[in-house]
Amino acid sequence: MKNKQTLFNKLTNPKYIMVYATIGIFLIIYAFGAFVYGDKGFTTVRTFVNLFIDNAYFGISAVGMTMVLITGGIDLSVGAVASLTGMFIAYGTSVLGLHPLTCIFAALVMGVSLGLLMGWVIHYLNVPAFITTLTGMFFARGVCSLISRESIDIHHPFFDALASWKIYLMRYADGHWVRIKPIAFINFNVLLFLVMIAIGTFILQKTRFGRNIYAIGGNEQSASLMGLPVGRTKVLVYGFNGLCSVLAGISYALYVKSGWNLSLQGGELEVITCAVIGGTLLTGGVGYMIGTLFGVLLKSIIPALITFNGNLLSWWGKIATGLLLLLFICIQRFVVTTSGKRK
């Protein structure tokens, strides 16, 4: 028990075990892919960037979900809220002729209010988060179906511009910048995902609000006895998650350019999966944004591997994801039981 805070000491701090596990397993799978499908282009920047592009909307939602899970809660409404956001934009622009930004604004008001309301019910009426957010899910899905039961395409110059906006990755050669080959780019979704991860990290690590989230997840009663604003924090966390769901919905709409009342069914579970394989404890108190980032990558690298294989049915991806989740839950159990007993 030395009081030296060396770099080694910092890095071996047991609280990082889960994050290391996530990053480690991602690297192993990536190395496997590189070894087997390296000749087919698995190691290219483009493949790597596509992991982000194809899953940015899950990642954006996972930022808010990570916070909810750290408080020891859960939010099952995120998929439905994202779907409703897409419907707002689609119906608003294509049927009502509104500007997409107006629709987005309406979706934000709806998503954040629903989140705050659910947080309020969970804390002040003491209703389990599972039930409360299940209700929220049915509500959002129902409203979505009320608006339209058919898929609506989104056509609007502003929206199209935003969807096709991209930054090409460049390299410096022969005195000027050229696009790398094969061509790889970052779009608005990826940018939004990375920005949200950065914001999430800042909130969790650098603000009192963020630390209160961890304290509540560690022991809610203690947090309250320590004089922390438990109620306010929980309500705001669900509100923030509502915001993330709406942003994820925008991102998904940009990705598919349509709104449909049955889109993203079960999406909430995919989002929870991302957070959990990213090292967030379902029992609360532990989790990092960087873990969630790698959780999203880890979840999206499996379908990528299956695509590269070409012979496997895509359902193998579900099975692999399930196994991965199981593995992480086992690791979590192990970490929780061993660290609890250490003296």
Binding site: K15, F202, Q205, K206, T207, R208, R211, N212, Y214, A215, G217, G218, N219, Q221, S222, A223, L225, M226, G227, L228, G285, V286, G340
Partner: peptide, 25 residues
């Protein structure tokens, strides 16, 4: 003991009234 087992010893002492610098903990 009414503290949070998942937070560090230091943080348990200061949580809720962390010293701030440039708007950050």
């Amino acid at each position: 003991v009414n503290l949070c087992p998942n937070l560090s010893v230091a943080e348990n002492i200061f949580v809720g009234r962390q010293p701030m610098k440039h708007g950050q903990i």
